[in-house]
């Protein structure tokens, strides 16, 4: 793995052009650029229907400086797998000379929900591709509807907080561990504020033979309701509160915490309370008073349980 410094990265041509129409402060393009910095080889990008797709490829404009393909919403993994399969066939025949890497981007809707079957199938078949989930914890492209990645207590347009409801009632699915359970060679959680960690994980994923998965928390100013300039600090807070621990899993078995989360595990950094997470975003504003105190407590309890369980997997 090559050393990752911003000075070095700055020399790599950026493969996602400006002129895309993501919202101000959106972290999707930040993550996409960081991921693509993980390899200097040719990359084919594919995407599920979602914010990144509609914003970067509105005809007759494309923001992609590298081959790009999209087909539908629930099949990002199969979309990528098809190109990768064609590559295998054509490379073997000498019809494609270059070495090519494959990455697909899909939101949490396209990953946790409608795209899960295609993703699971592609992982089991062992396609040589990196799947990146841009997890902004709801269907943002269609207007902030809940997904199975939405955190408990979040008010969304299909899980409103109201007089008798505290927002989404369920804890989110643990998609990273579901992917790890497929026994794929590499799965990881990442966050855009931790750019070095993100890019190293992308490097690792691109260099690994077989299916790899990076689940990236993707702060969304519009859907989470915070000021656009806060995107990066909210990303950091997700890690600090252990809402989104940074870790990686090799072959479904070897769990390792990444530096920022390791520091928390080692007691060198503070594990911040979930109330800080709640207070930072408008989607949780109804949880601030006493009315839903018990919900906040159960959130903290669940987070602690998950964190402990992760530490055990990491043999800590």
């Amino acid at each position: 793995m090559t050393a990752v410094t911003l000075q070095e990265l700055n020399k790599i041509p950026v493969r996602l052009a400006s002129g895309h129409r993501l919202c101000a402060g959106c972290t999707e393009s930040v993550i996409a650029k960081q991921i693509l910095m993980g390899t200097e080889k040719n990359v084919v990008v594919s995407a599920a229907t979602g914010c990144l797709q509609v914003s970067t490829t509105l005809f007759p404009y494309t923001s992609w400086k590298t081959p790009y393909i999209h087909t539908a919403f629930g099949n990002a993994a199969a979309t990528c797998a098809g190109v990768e399969t064609a590559y295998k066939a054509l490379k073997r025949q000498g019809k494609v000379k270059e070495d090519v890497k494959f990455v697909t981007f899909a939101g949490d809707g396209g990953t946790y929900d409608i795209g899960l079957q295609a993703l699971s199938g592609a992982a089991e078949r062992g396609h040589n591709m990196l799947y990146v989930c841009l997890n902004n914890e709801a269907y943002m492209n269609t207007g902030i509807q809940r997904s199975s990645a939405t955190g408990i207590g979040a008010s969304t347009t299909t899980s409103w907080a109201g007089d008798v409801a505290y927002g989404k009632k369920e804890f989110p699915k643990d998609m990273t561990r579901i992917m790890a359970a497929h026994g794929i060679p590499y799965a990881a959680q990442a966050a855009p504020h931790a750019w070095k960690d993100m890019i190293q994980k992308a490097q690792r994923a691109f260099e690994t033979e077989g299916p790899t998965f990076i689940n990236a928390i993707t702060p969304c100013p519009r859907g989470w309701r915070f000021a656009t300039e806060e995107s990066i600090s909210i990303s950091r807070l997700a890690v600090e509160t252990c809402i989104w621990p940074l870790y990686e899993v090799e072959n479904g078995i070897n769990y390792n915490l990444s530096p920022e989360s390791q520091r928390i595990a080692d007691g060198k950094a503070e594990k911040k309370p979930v109330t800080e997470w709640i207070n930072s975003q408008g989607r949780f504003s109804h949880l601030k008073g006493d009315k839903w105190k018990s919900v906040v407590e159960s959130m903290q309890a669940e987070l602690d349980k998950k964190w402990e369980s992760l530490l055990k997997l990491c043999k800590l």
């Binding site: 393909i69 199969a78 979309t79 054509l90 295609a118």
Partner: peptide
């Protein structure tokens, strides 16, 4: 390259992008 996919939706997806890719 013969791929036994997990569903018809993925079968046609995979075939579509494979063809798009030039195969």
């Amino acid at each position: 390259e013969f791929v036994c996919v997990e569903s018809e939706h993925s079968a046609l997806t995979l075939c579509t992008t494979s063809s798009s890719a030039g195969a």
